[in-house]
């Protein structure tokens, strides 16, 4: 299967998942956890960027999958707790499972970097999904005899959501260009987390009351953005970049030059 096919299939099959447990089962059954594993080791030989592409497609559709955790199993320090995303025990605001460990040391090194990049991809997909739904809705919903997008206050919101999702995607691209650099991964995740918050807020504002309903399904994206952006949130990530110094900070975007 080519990658666009995998992306399409992933969205289709996961769309039929009845719950989160089912989504995890489907991800494993389909063998997508082998996507980024070298062919010599029985995997599909995809790059990290390929995996990120599938993650993005899944989350842009408002769906959940432990694909990042299967490629990079992590234990995270989140707001004074030790958390395993997609472990058993608790549920986040989007209904996705996670476990809280009584003790345990959070992951470090290459696995954590890889997870950060893939989790950023998750947020980027969510931003893109919500921003494009917002643009489409503004172009079609009519009030006062015209599409609401014709009101400049609304079109500024559409522009904001679009711009934030473009920015988050650019941050992800920088991280994928330099996948061994944890600081770029942190930057990508922090940017995507902030973007996720803005896009969710703006998307709901533009959609009006219908946007809050289960039926419309915007909440499938916004609840996920709210959950994903706190794993951990930018308040914990950004300080890690604040004292790098000018010389190192400037090299962060230039990994593939």
């Amino acid at each position: 299967m080519s990658l666009p096919d995998v992306e399409e299939a992933a969205v289709k099959v996961l769309g039929a998942a009845v719950d989160m447990r089912d989504a995890a089962r489907i991800t494993l059954d389909q063998g997508w956890h082998l996507l980024g594993v070298p062919e010599s080791e029985g995997g599909m030989g995809g790059t990290l960027a390929d995996v990120a592409g599938v993650v993005r497609a899944i989350s842009a559709a408002g769906l959940s999958s432990p694909l990042p955790e299967l490629h990079a199993p992590v234990v995270l320090a989140v707001a004074n707790r030790v958390v395993v995303p997609w472990g058993d025990g608790e549920e986040n605001i989007a209904g996705e499972p996670y476990a809280v460990l009584a003790s345990g040391s959070p992951s470090t090194g290459a696995t954590l970097t890889r997870w950060r990049i893939l989790h950023a991809a998750r947020l980027v997909g969510g931003c893109q999904g919500a921003a494009s739904r917002t643009a489409a809705y503004a172009a079609t919903r009519a009030q006062f005899g015209r599409p609401i997008a014709r009101f400049q206050a609304v079109s500024a919101l559409v522009a904001e959501a679009h711009a934030q999702s473009v920015l988050a995607a650019a941050g992800l691209e920088a991280a994928l260009a330099d996948p061994g650099n944890d600081f770029v991964a942190i930057a990508a995740l922090a940017t995507a987390s902030r973007a996720g918050g803005v896009v969710a807020r703006v998307a709901h504002q533009v959609h009006g009351a219908i946007g809050i309903t289960r039926e419309l399904g915007l909440e499938r994206l916004t609840r996920r953005l709210w959950a994903w952006r706190d794993l951990p949130g930018e308040a914990e990530l950004e300080p890690l970049l604040g004292l790098l110094g000018e010389q190192r900070a400037w090299t962060l975007g230039a990994g593939d030059e």
Partner: peptide, 11 residues
């Protein structure tokens, strides 16, 4: 505060 700017600048 500075880290937020560094992250945004990278993107």
């Amino acid at each position: 505060r500075v880290g937020e700017l560094v992250a945004r600048l990278t993107a």
